[in-house]
């Protein structure tokens, strides 16, 4: 782990993008998230770390209301994006998810062409008036996801035929194509080899210029490499949240320290 790099990293203070207060999540009788408060900044990479089963994914899925698709899940509390309560009755979760893109643990390109994968969101939301506009959106998304050069000659080839790392970047392009404001990533590199991981991490760093990025990761090195802010979850509670450098070098909570030094798995 390159600790020196973390210490030197400058952290600009940004506006608050996502504000969560008193969030509770239940799966039936399981209390998966216990009273979590967190403010996530715009144009920042925020990492969620913690032992597996501690509720990182669950909390992430609250931010785009993906928990609504799980029958047994119940969410309480208040989550605001740009000051607007996303659990308000007026908010359409389907519309919200276009604004809050999500990238999953395992690359999941649709069994369609590369082009159609990226054009999926824009088509559903009617973002392009004609074919050439759609072409532009697709190209821009693929460029943003740093995969344009690799696929520009085979946009009609199936997306499932790409390598794992390329598939994951395609999924990022797909998410970026709907012009979201927030990008949620749930362990986006856990199914990738080290080289593909490095490419995706580099991409995440670039995405920070335009989006607020929240990334769940089980790798502390990764959190240290890509994030400016880190939140440590343990048994459904948010234990500690702060500057990444701070968390990794000088944690306040003993549980954070045990996790970082490898004593909690």
């Amino acid at each position: 782990m390159n600790d020196m790099r973390i210490l030197e990293r400058d952290v600009e203070t940004n506006a608050i993008k996502i504000a969560a207060k008193g969030v509770q999540v239940f799966y039936g009788d399981t209390h998966a998230i216990k009273d979590v408060d967190v403010d996530i900044q715009d144009k920042t990479v925020t990492a969620f770390i913690g032992p597996s089963g501690c509720g990182k994914s669950t909390f992430l899925r609250c931010i785009n209301r993906m928990n609504d698709t799980i029958d047994v899940a119940r969410v309480q509390g208040d989550i605001r994006i740009d000051g607007e309560d996303i659990y308000d009755r007026k908010v359409d979760p389907v519309q919200l998810r276009a604004k809050v893109g999500m990238v999953f643990q395992k690359p999941n390109p649709f069994p369609k062409s590369i082009y159609d994968n990226v054009a999926y969101g824009p088509r559903i939301h009617g973002l392009a008036r004609n074919k050439s506009e759609l072409d532009d959106i697709v190209e821009r998304a693929l460029r943003n996801a740093a995969i344009w050069n690799e696929v520009k000659d085979r946009l009609n080839a199936p997306g499932t035929g790409l390598s794992g790392g390329q598939q994951q970047r395609l999924c990022i392009a797909r998410a970026v194509a709907t012009e979201p404001e927030v990008l949620l990533m749930d362990e986006p590199c856990s199914a990738l080899d080290p080289i593909a991981t490095a490419q995706v991490e580099e991409l995440i760093d670039e995405l920070r210029q335009n989006y607020s990025v929240v990334i769940v990761t089980h790798s502390m090195q990764q959190a240290a490499r890509v994030s400016q802010k880190t939140a440590f979850f343990h048994l459904g509670s948010l234990v500690e949240y702060g500057e990444t450098g701070q968390i990794f070098t000088n944690p306040e909570d003993p549980r954070t320290e045990s996790y970082i030094t490898g004593r909690i798995g």
Binding site: M66, R97, A98, G101, F104, K106, P109, F110, R174, A175
Partner: peptide, 17 residues
């Protein structure tokens, strides 16, 4: 795979879409 459905929901598609 459920992951395909999740991917589509995550992009703001409705269930029937």
């Amino acid at each position: 795979p459920q992951s395909l459905r999740d991917g589509s929901f995550g992009l703001g598609a409705t269930h029937s879409e």
